[in-house]
């Protein structure tokens, strides 16, 4: 296979939810000496971007997106050992979770998948996360981004508490707070002083990438 063919095969395997094909194409990439970094960003991740678009257009739904991400991970597992040791040294760290009182976690999981595909190092706290844990974890791992999700109006106020907690620990300036989920809006983000709001997982990645790091 030529390099463009391999890249197409990697992207196609992700789009077709085909783990086996992803492994085969990843192995071919290594065998032809293609840099693993290129195979990931120009192959697997490109495929995942197409998946994101198909999701936005209601051609794919959640199970399909999850299986595409499984195929991406299958390819990554083969490629990752071939990355230069320091490839991810500069990766920004994100702490993500669903705020206390809420157990809807599928949207958050999609955001996590997209962030990882975009090269972030993601620390997932899961769902029904005690509010202080967001700040504790960010401090522990040195994360510059806290991403919070909720789908319920009854729990969204918890996000404000986390922003306040960051302030009181003197971490507000160096932490980007990104929020999302059904009832969340730009207006709510402004109101509680969060930095970013995104309506879906693709936009979340775009906004994070485009933000101006102070």
């Amino acid at each position: 296979m030529t390099n463009p063919e391999i890249l197409n095969a990697l992207a196609g395997a992700v789009i077709d939810m085909d783990e086996e094909a992803a492994r085969t194409a990843a192995t071919a990439a290594i065998e032809t000496g293609m840099p693993a970094y290129e195979a990931i960003t120009e192959g697997l991740v490109k495929g995942m971007q197409v998946v994101g678009d198909k999701y936005e257009q209601q051609e794919y739904f959640i199970p399909e997106v999850l299986l595409c991400s499984d195929a991406m991970i299958a390819g990554l597992e083969i490629l990752q050992p071939h990355l230069p040791v320091d490839h991810n040294a500069g990766a920004e760290k994100v702490v993500i979770g669903v705020v206390q009182g809420d157990t809807h976690d599928i949207g958050k999981n999609l955001v996590k998948i997209m962030l990882e595909a975009a090269g972030y190092e993601v620390h997932d706290l899961g769902r029904n996360v005690p509010l202080a844990s967001f700040v504790d974890k960010a401090e522990e791992v040195g994360a510059s981004i806290i991403a919070m999700a909720t789908l319920m109006t009854t729990t969204m106020e918890g996000m404000r508490t986390v922003v306040e907690e960051l302030k009181s620990r003197g971490m507000r300036e160096r932490t980007t707070v990104m929020i999302g989920g059904g009832p969340i809006s730009q207006a709510f983000a402004d109101e509680i002083g969060a930095d970013l709001y995104a309506a879906d997982a693709n936009v979340a990645v775009r906004k994070l990438k485009n933000r101006q790091v102070a």
Binding site: I62, P63, L66, L67, D70, I106
Partner: peptide
């Protein structure tokens, strides 16, 4: 478990 379940509609 919701996520495992909807994944398994394929797997």
């Amino acid at each position: 478990g919701t996520e495992a379940f909807i994944r398994e509609t394929y797997k």
